[in-house]
Write a protein that binds this DNA or RNA. Sequence first.
DNA 1: TTGAAAGCGGTACCAC
DNA 2: GTGGTACCGCTTTCAA
Lengths: 337, 337
Amino acid sequence: MTDARPPSFVSARMVAERAGVSRSAVSRTFTDGASVSDETRRKVLRAAGELGYHVNHLARGLRERSNIVCLVVANLHTQVRAYLVDLLTRRLQAAGRITMVLNTEADTESVSRALRQTLHYRADATVVLSGAPPASLIETCLANGQQVILINRGERLDGAARIGIDNALAGTEAFHLLRRAGCERLAVVTSGTRTASLVERERAFTAAAHAAGAEASVTEVGPSSYAAGQDAARLVFGRSRTPDGVFCTTDLLALGFMDVARRDFGLRLPQDLCLIGFDNIDESGWDSYRLTTFAQPFAAITDAVMELLADPAAVPGARRLIEPQPVWRSTVRPGRA
Amino acid sequence: MTDARPPSFVSARMVAERAGVSRSAVSRTFTDGASVSDETRRKVLRAAGELGYHVNHLARGLRERSNIVCLVVANLHTQVRAYLVDLLTRRLQAAGRITMVLNTEADTESVSRALRQTLHYRADATVVLSGAPPASLIETCLANGQQVILINRGERLDGAARIGIDNALAGTEAFHLLRRAGCERLAVVTSGTRTASLVERERAFTAAAHAAGAEASVTEVGPSSYAAGQDAARLVFGRSRTPDGVFCTTDLLALGFMDVARRDFGLRLPQDLCLIGFDNIDESGWDSYRLTTFAQPFAAITDAVMELLADPAAVPGARRLIEPQPVWRSTVRPGRA
DNA sequence: TTGAAAGCGGTACCAC
DNA sequence: GTGGTACCGCTTTCAA
């Protein structure tokens, strides 16, 4: 061990030399259906073990598919994203894929950069969880033979698959839940970062109210955070006409809203105020909250992604709409029904 | 456009043909310090744009470094992990690296599999956030010229860099905080999944108690979850000698513990019970909790990783110990000092 | 400045 | 079953 050179990855050639066989033999040993004699295989395996050899998937990817799937995501630290990425990476690995995570801002420029990386690394597929990629770039991905799967993105892009949550359904259902609970003064609280999902929830809620001849005020606050939820409550309950039924477009907003409503305004839930959120984050199930909400259909989304990945032909124009499941807890009075 | 073949990635050769130049010229156009005439460069760039060409980094990685960094992590959905991965991926990208996330279980076999993937994809470096990789495999990584950075892993492995949080310091400090607050019956609550970090916190707390001639009971419950924290409270307050000062080794435990202590046992914090957690997750700052705790030094950890990555020579045997910062809130009485 | 050619690490196809 | 060879897409000599 007087080798002074910096160590570098061991290649098939080195293994071949050590085992006294050809490179082909080494390759065959590590190729599934190839024919190698037991004798040769043993020699190769031994040499490989001693050297610490691992097949170079980068080189292999030169000829065939790379097996790389890129996840383009923003706000990875939020629970909803983290759960989805957790599940996706797990499933992808189980399917023999490797995941590259491109953590971007939500703005178009950042997403574009990420998408270009996806191309640079010859990813077989790109799954976009955040941001709005420009159509032209998606085109390029598709033209390069890449599968593109958009999750909860508003835009429709031909050639890309779209998986979405039925946000409108949730908004509509939220209205009816509150109505059945006997609420008369309705409000929706949403964040100022108006992503497509949030807008759909809000619109569906107010539309349902309209259709039923009811009114629903809309309050828009900063980001989708606990603190913004608090701000919203201070705003809403500072006004003359205070609501008795509120739909917050995310749980985080709802939780902040709830704390201020109870603490600062002495409201009891669900007696004085009925509240519904969306996401079903862990905290919503805690004793302090017990929030009635809608669950993100993580499993169904992941299933859909894996299905599309397994069948590239099905991707162009594919569309899946998944229903979020209502989670009944304690912030809405049971209806008379 | 009557091409019926499935599309595939466009290569430099195609660009060269279209631009009427050599492949070398294309390569040079996309290589930083290379000399190309403006004329040629323009032709190449135009052809590349039309075709949607992107340099194949996989092929490039055959000769030089791959620029791939692997993150080996378990429980990606937990807030502490998600925050760290979020920050790391962001910084890595900013430094021109690409991140592969290997989401594993914490058991040795899963981590080993992940580490082998790391080798297959010729990652320049592997950052282990979870699990305990076998020393032999780490050896292999190092022998292949890979940098290995262990975060919060107990074991010491020569050749790998270790970045750790000073958990012992936190445990000791927690004791003194409770002592100064006048607590007399001390307890520590920790999870049954005894990771190195958790054990260090617990041990340091009980050791400090001992050294001061005090006693501290230890209660061990299931996972590091809110529900387990609730269980712990039921256990602890069901006993004859109930504590008035508790250190939970994670915030999640503390929050569950707190809810049951208040709701089921009518305890007021900090009057009847002082409580300290660890992690400073978002929820701990919420109105319902205002938990006194220690903040995970995410930024410092990430800085250390980036520093080590930038200077491979510094990695072998490097060791960084980072102090968690106490976060004063409302669950500990101010001391007399 | 430019094109030809070699080589990076593999796999597939070819005789033998 | 085995080794030789060509080729995947790129960068880097090397001559011209």
